[in-house]
């Protein structure tokens, strides 16, 4: 009787270690899978959405180009911007496009000539829908998925 209890007890103790490792292996596997997905995502250069250039001019981004947007994208003439609009009428820091709580928003970053959405110059942050057109300097871009 004594022996059986000791054997049982060791069985439980070993079972604890086995479960611990089972959990660890599952957790490692989940981590591994997540990293695989991460590599796949990093491999293809996609944005959350795109600004598709509708109208441009020589020196600016070419018409039809799909510029990828991140959660926060700065637009302007300066090379440090995420989307560079090489146009004399654009300011060096012109506008900010952001994705907040599932909605796209655009706001002017204090530009000289202003940011125009669907033909109206904006004064405050403006909600963007897919298909809306932004005019920065002389470059027109449309928000697409």
């Amino acid at each position: 009787m004594e022996v059986t209890f000791a054997v049982l007890l060791w069985g439980v103790r070993i079972a604890f270690l086995v479960l611990l490792y089972l959990f660890l292996i599952r957790a490692f596997a989940a981590l591994w899978r997540a990293m695989r997905v991460e590599e796949a995502v990093a491999a293809k250069p996609t944005g959350l959405a795109f600004l598709v250039v509708q109208k441009s001019h020589s020196g600016g981004p070419r018409s039809g180009a799909r510029l990828p947007l991140r959660a926060l994208t700065s637009i302007g003439r300066d090379a440090g911007n995420d989307v560079v609009v090489n146009d004399d009428a654009a300011s060096s820091k012109h506008a900010l496009v952001s994705f907040r709580d599932g909605e796209w928003w655009v706001e002017d970053a204090g530009s000289t000539n202003g940011t125009v959405v669907n033909g109206t110059r904006i004064t405050a942050a403006e909600r963007l829908h897919y298909g809306d057109e932004i005019l920065i300097g002389r470059v027109a871009m449309r928000l697409e998925q």
Binding site: L17, L20, Y21, L24, A27, F28, L31, A34, M35, L72
Partner: peptide, 29 residues
């Protein structure tokens, strides 16, 4: 729990911290 238990415990922390760092890398802002 022996070396096996102690090592597994440290590995659990490793996975937790690694996961946190991946979350940090992926974060949008």
């Amino acid at each position: 729990t022996g070396f096996l238990g102690g090592a597994a415990l440290l590995a659990l922390y490793l996975v937790l911290v690694f996961r946190g760092m991946i979350i940090a890398l992926r974060a949008p802002t």
